[in-house]
């Protein structure tokens, strides 16, 4: 009986542990894969985006740079509105990125107006 209780507590801990959202998510793996096979662009973008949503839902501050990375992948797909939206989110979350993000937003706007 005692063993059963212990087992259920352990199971709960393991299951609970698995669902923990970490600030980086699967970034390292996805970034590496992206360089290895550039056709994974869409996967990299989608996974990072859903990780960011997960962070927002769980009230966890995502790792620095992730919003901007999604922005750049949007830019690559010529989705300028999406790019600007994510660059702005990066700036909002990380004031240290302001100079860089402002430059990216300005140049994205220039490209989109062409």
């Amino acid at each position: 009986m005692k063993a059963l209780k212990l087992l259920s507590v352990l199971t709960l801990l393991i299951v609970g542990g698995c669902s923990t959202v970490t600030p980086w998510g699967n970034y390292e793996h996805n970034l590496f894969k992206y360089y290895e096979s550039p056709e994974t662009t869409t996967q990299f973008k989608q996974e990072t985006e859903s990780h960011l949503k997960e962070c927002e839902r769980s009230n966890i501050k995502p790792a620095p740079g992730l919003y901007a990375e999604v922005g750049t992948l949007c830019l690559k797909q010529a989705n300028y509105e999406c790019a600007i939206e994510f660059y702005q989110k990066e700036k909002l979350n990380w004031p240290e990125s302001e100079v860089f993000m402002d430059k990216l937003i300005r140049s994205t706007k220039r490209v989109s107006e062409k």
Partner: peptide, 12 residues
């Protein structure tokens, strides 16, 4: 430390 978005930096 704040680290800049690596792939974005590389792309620039």
């Amino acid at each position: 430390y704040y680290v800049f978005p690596y792939n974005t930096v590389k792309t620039v």
